[in-house]
Design a protein around this nucleic acid. Sequence first.
DNA 1: CACTTGACCTGTCCGC
DNA 2: TGCGGACAGGTCAAGT
Length: 289
Amino acid sequence: MPELPEVETVRRGLAERIVGKLVMAEAHDTAKGFPNASHEVRAFLLGATITDVRRRAKVLFIDLSTSYSLMIHLKMTGQLVFVGESRFGAGHPNDSLIGVLPDSSTRVTLTFADGSALYFNDQRKFGWMKLLPTSEIEHVPFMQKVGPEPLEPQFTAQQFATRFTRRANTTIKAALLDQSVVAGVGNIYADESLWGAKIHPQRLVRTITDDEFAALYTELRAVMNLAIQKGGSSNHTYVNADGKKGSYMDFARVFRREGLLCPRCGATIEKLRVAGRGTHVCPVCQRIE
DNA sequence: CACTTGACCTGTCCGC
DNA sequence: TGCGGACAGGTCAAGT
């Protein structure tokens, strides 16, 4: 469930809290969450200092002073929660997590020299973390095929529309979710931006007009920027680096609002299945033609 | 190559 | 109340 705005929120929180910290220890449960945690590879993690926290699409990178990086995908239920030095003194915002983490969903724990810790939790074990030389990130297959960042200032509406030509015969929703078209869009922001642009998710890409692509570009960026401002969306498991939920769902206009009224026209919002995903639509505003 | 479907997981919710 | 099954969704592999 973490999409671009949620991953960006986590990135910002971590960048503030862990850059400069020295990694003292690493513990993980099974091979699944950290598949390449061999002794040799861990040598580039233990004793390293964190130099940066970056994001590309829905992937996070924690760069280390050893020229290695942790590459992390949260998939649906992954969390990266920092618990600070407040274990040695009251008043820290995430005091409430002390003694709570690690829990049964904790897959990896990084402990820092000052006693603080970073927990990678993942209830459904879809997420992963791997350690690789920083210079090899660009060669990872996903990184090679992933599309442009939709919020980059230089990303234009024209470029956005052109990216879709390869997916002319599929639905606009399937194409929006395709990470090689545009990076970072998931189910929530696909539905929200299509509603904003008044485009039915089942429309075929080749039927979308230039004006509709322009509207979708504008809506997608607006919705993602608002979501970042609100700290992301929390359906159930998503939390930021402090273990706190985001509030975008309070602003959602169609997502998970089936049976409620469309805030634009008052029709009843429906839920259907498009591209194998639960899809929310206003049947009046978003005509299929 | 383009496109769709199933697999990966486990907690939650719904209906019987 | 208990239980089975559907559902949640990001990405990849395998299928058409």
